[in-house]
Design a protein around this nucleic acid. Structure first.
Length: 288
DNA sequence: TACCAGGAGAGCG
DNA sequence: CGCTCTCATGGT
């Protein structure tokens, strides 16, 4: 059980930053590392069930860190620009947090995300884990759970094996990136120590990783608060909400995003993303 | 059915 | 540079 304030579990797990959480019987079930987890939103707490069972005194720091329980939420959103779009976005999903995900899983997931709807990304990743992940212990009666396959396991695949998981043209990208991780051409852990621009430059050397996907990994996997991924939704948000008069080019919007949204611009970006995706369909959240 | 999806990379002028 | 085209698949 975690005591929390302003924590919107549904927005956090269902907003498209992670792809392995399912809404089941009033709670969220997913995998963190090598453990099956069930989380349930309470009034001012999150209840936690873990498999294999852990006793109450066991250290859950790793899960607190993943869920970013201890961030100063009020301070963070107080740094957002005080404009109409941000007020609307925050009002729509107050309590959305950025997760701190495992870098390789985050990288691989977003390589698979390009020009795919979130539902499809989830399907691809589920099949990838079922096929190449390790089975994990689960509570009685639950459907089987699998770890996210390591870079080593992916690097040992053929392109055809990966394509069988329906990832299409992304297969050679995932394979190539896994190989570079395994043979040491990039050190994912080392990126934690680099400034944002250098870490981004490193990631972009990987096949299938451009500015957008690199920023997703930096934001969701490394916690760089100023990584600002601009996908089709955020592009639409920036154009529609901030520059409605004329069509501003992407390059210009990248510059705008680097200066306008403050020290936690990446988090602001996620509020804009969630707002754009849900404002015309309020109830669609739990399944998408 | 037609359109589009949390893009990247190659080819072109 | 900056623009266009292709890549694979399936949801809505």
């Amino acid at each position: 059980m975690f005591q929390v304030q302003n924590y919107d579990l549904a927005a956090t797990l269902g907003c498209g930053q992670a792809f392995r959480w399912d809404w089941i019987d009033g709670g969220w079930e997913g995998i963190v590392g090598s453990r099956w987890i069930r989380l349930q939103q309470g009034q001012d707490n999150l209840s936690v069930e873990i498999s294999p069972k852990t006793n109450a005194t066991q250290d859950l720091g790793w899960l607190r860190d993943y869920l970013q329980i201890d961030v100063d939420f009020e301070f963070m959103i107080s740094t957002f620009p005080n404009d109409e779009p941000m007020r609307q976005s925050v009002a729509a999903c107050r309590g959305l947090r950025l997760l701190k995900q495992e870098p390789w899983e985050c990288l691989a997931s977003f390589i698979l995300s390009s020009t795919k709807q979130i539902v499809q990304i989830r399907q691809i990743i589920a099949q990838l884990c079922e096929t190449f992940g390790e089975p994990l212990p689960i509570p009685k009666g639950r459907k089987p759970a699998f770890s996210f396959p390591t870079a080593e396991r992916i690097a040992a695949c053929t392109e055809a094996e990966l394509r069988a998981c329906k990832m299409g043209f992304r297969a050679p990208y995932l394979l190539g990136s896994a190989q570079k991780v395994v043979n040491g051409e990039i050190h994912l852990q080392k990126l934690h120590e680099l400034p944002l621009e250098q870490a981004r430059a490193e990631l972009i050397t990987l096949p299938g990783v451009g500015r957008k996907i690199a920023d997703c990994v930096l934001l969701f996997g490394y916690g760089f608060p100023q990584a600002f991924p601009i996908d089709v939704w955020v592009l639409k948000a920036l154009r529609q909400l901030y520059f409605p008069k004329r069509t501003v080019k992407l390059k210009r919007l990248v510059k705008f995003s680097e200066t306008y949204f403050g020290p936690y611009s990446g988090c602001a970006q996620q509020y804009l993303f969630h707002y754009m995706r849900t404002k015309n369909k309020p109830a669609a959240l739990s399944e998408k």
